[in-house]
């Protein structure tokens, strides 16, 4: 494939309402964003969760590189994201999602390739965790 840089989209996968709430917060701060999907694991078995993520990823991949982001390492959302990466090595995944990571993603995604963006997200997310 020849390249202008591809857009980067994300699928946020988390427990309860966390994914939607995080995206509400992001858009409250940055304004309306495109090319993202929020998925809750509520009521979904692992197979259904895997399927929901796969559908969201496929849809975004029509125009974007995709990063899937989960809240808790070791949780079902995290496992489903790992499953997704196993199926499609083009998909990247992070866990331990916090608001600063997501903000960094949306602020920087138009100016970075996926690998550099992942580095920035991780750095910003870690730096946000502090004792006051």
């Amino acid at each position: 494939m020849s390249e202008a840089r591809k857009k980067i989209g994300c699928v946020v996968v988390a427990h309860g309402n966390v994914a939607n709430c995080l995206m509400d917060a992001v858009q409250g701060i940055l304004g309306t964003q495109s090319n993202w999907t929020a998925i809750s694991n509520t009521g979904l078995g692992l197979n259904d969760l895997n399927a929901a993520i796969a559908v969201a990823v496929k849809e975004l991949q029509k125009t974007c590189d995709v990063i899937v982001m989960s809240d808790m390492p070791g949780g079902s959302c995290h496992h489903a994201c790992q499953e997704m990466v196993g199926q499609d090595a083009e998909v990247r995944a992070v866990s331990g999602l916090n608001l600063m990571m997501l903000l960094e993603f949306f602020v920087k995604r138009d100016r970075q390739n996926v690998d550099d963006l992942l580095g920035l997200i991780m750095e910003r997310g870690r730096d946000a965790i502090r004792i006051l």
Binding site: G28, I29, L30, G31, L103, V107, K108
Partner: peptide, 10 residues
């Protein structure tokens, strides 16, 4: 706050 530092700041 966030809109100032993150959104306008960026």
């Amino acid at each position: 706050h966030g809109q100032v530092t993150v959104a306008w700041g960026s």
